[in-house]
Design a binder for these strands. Structure first.
Lengths: 216, 216
DNA sequence: CTATGTGAAGTGATTCACAGCA
DNA sequence: TGCTGTGAATCACTTCACATAG
């Protein structure tokens, strides 16, 4: 399940925003294959979408293609990365160093593209002070309110147990963080101006279960 | 990012299906708080949604409420669970026992509600034969085609590296699995009749990054 | 002749607003 | 009176189809 709240007189539709990172990944694959130019049909095939939609999505960002030719891969990747705000490093904090939190930290996939971990918090005293990866030491959750503001992350990831998540979210918001990615299976309440995305693994499985039940 | 493909002369809209597990979670919370009856407004508050939408969503499944009163919590939870196919145990296989795969296995959250792990595969020979949790031993990925059909999972979860995911998906589909939850950051191609959901952590962060860039 | 960019049409989901019922 | 269930209205996204440019 994904959910977004936040400021909205959206120029670009939310559904388009959700596809842009996928297009970007396809363009990086094309770069790796030394493909210099790609058409909307090509992007659609790689991303599992539809060519008209690719064109409309890209048109929200500007006019990057050449009629009769297609899109120059490097240039288009640059434009999408810029639209996504990936040209500046994004500072990200993690709260909750359980198995899932550890997995995210060690996952190089987004360590790469403009995302930098700047802090890791956990409430377990045994973990506090130990290395968390990336040269970071685990901080105690009690320190969160005191230390997060100066670290200045734009994004915080919550991987705490469900019962701690709202309290953590409140502290994160109070520290000025404007975007939250929550993996805890609870509905968080955040102010209007905070963007919240919810990823719930149990919800995903239940959706698949529905389709199995329906499928026969 | 989430994506669904599959058979569709959908009675129930996909967006509704995505909210049902959330409503179910709220009802379980209400049960834990010994609340016997809840209104659409109450469910909306707990789930972060809107009351009219809650009513419309539930109306796709049947007429479970009492006018002037609301919904009986236990009964509604039962109806939603049934609609989601959670009254029967769902057999789930995991492919790729890295950090993320391990985290999912150990996450009790869905071990509970109608989901049972029936097999774990990994390509690392050092892991094969070792205990994976829940009394399961890790099997080699090479065995997948031979052993998965008789284990008969309805759902498979892919947590392999990106470059292995399509091959794994092909084997899974060939083994008769009809629902796939993919965490590998690639666009998978699956036949029409297979339901695919994609969870990409990097994509989620990039979406949040967009909103930061836009927000000021 | 090819492929983009985009109004217009079509489709689907959300919200409204109220009839129906306890 | 209070709250559900639901047509009707609204809003948003997708798809079509073609003018436009190379």
């Amino acid at each position: 399940m994904t959910q977004v709240t936040g400021e909205h007189v959206n120029q670009v539709p939310e559904t388009t925003i959700e596809r842009l990172p996928v297009y970007l990944r396809c363009l990086h694959e094309a770069q790796a294959m030394r493909i210099p130019v790609i058409s909307s049909v090509g992007i659609a095939q790689m991303s599992g979408g539809n060519a008209a939609q690719v064109r409309k999505d890209l048109s929200y960002l500007g006019e990057f293609g050449t009629r009769g030719i297609g899109y120059e891969v490097d240039s288009l990747a640059g434009h999408i990365a810029k639209a996504l705000g990936l040209t500046q490093q994004r500072r990200v904090a993690l709260v909750g160093l359980g198995r899932l939190g550890s997995a995210l930290l060690s996952y190089g996939g987004f360590g790469d593209r403009g995302m930098t971990w700047v802090a890791v918090y956990d409430s377990d005293p045994d973990k506090v002070g130990t290395p968390a990866g990336g040269g970071l030491l685990v901080r105690g959750s009690a320190e969160l309110a005191a230390t997060l503001p100066e670290l200045g992350p734009g994004i915080a990831v919550i991987t705490t147990p469900a019962n701690a998540a709202q309290e953590v979210a409140d502290a994160i918001v109070a520290a000025g963080v404007r975007s939250i990615l929550n993996f805890a299976p609870v509905t968080l309440e955040v102010p209007e101006h905070v963007t919240l995305r919810q990823v719930d693994l149990s919800v995903e499985l239940q959706i698949l279960s529905f389709h199995l039940a329906e499928g026969s």
